[in-house]
Amino acid sequence: MRLRDNYRQAVKKFQPKPSYVANSLKAFFIGGGLSVVAEVLRAQFRVNLPSLAAEQAVLLLFIGAAVVLTAIGVYDEFSQFAGAGSTMLITWFANSLTSAALEHRSEGVVSGIAGHMFKVGGAALVYGIVAAYLFGLVYFMR
């Protein structure tokens, strides 16, 4: 097929394909590995803390680490490598808020940082809350 005859179809053979297998493997092992680390930490915290507090302590650690890694400019490189192994975790949500806040600090603390902080992460928040509400309804009606 010539490019001139049907560009949108013919151009596909010139476009690089994403490496689905490598990306899936990386996402599985890195995302899974981080989840194992979280589980081990939770078990450690569980020794001295009640169950909910232990989980929250792990979340705090992960969120804190993501914020620091974002601030020093490492998290985006990690995500480029890990793909879904980084974006499917709560650390990515922390990264989305921190990166937007960093990006927009030049427009001031109110209209810049506060106004733009949820620009990327906001969608996860909105649909997270909507989903939680719907599942909550189902739970109570059952």
């Binding site: 476009q15 690089p16 400019g73 998290y75 480029q80 890990a82 974006t87 990006e103 620009k119 990327v120």
Partner: peptide, 17 residues
């Protein structure tokens, strides 16, 4: 980046293109 794409430090995987 900030105008056309995402905040510079946002972790997204960009394609080879």
């Amino acid at each position: 980046e900030r105008q056309f794409r995402y905040p510079t430090e946002l972790g997204v995987q960009k394609p080879k293109s």
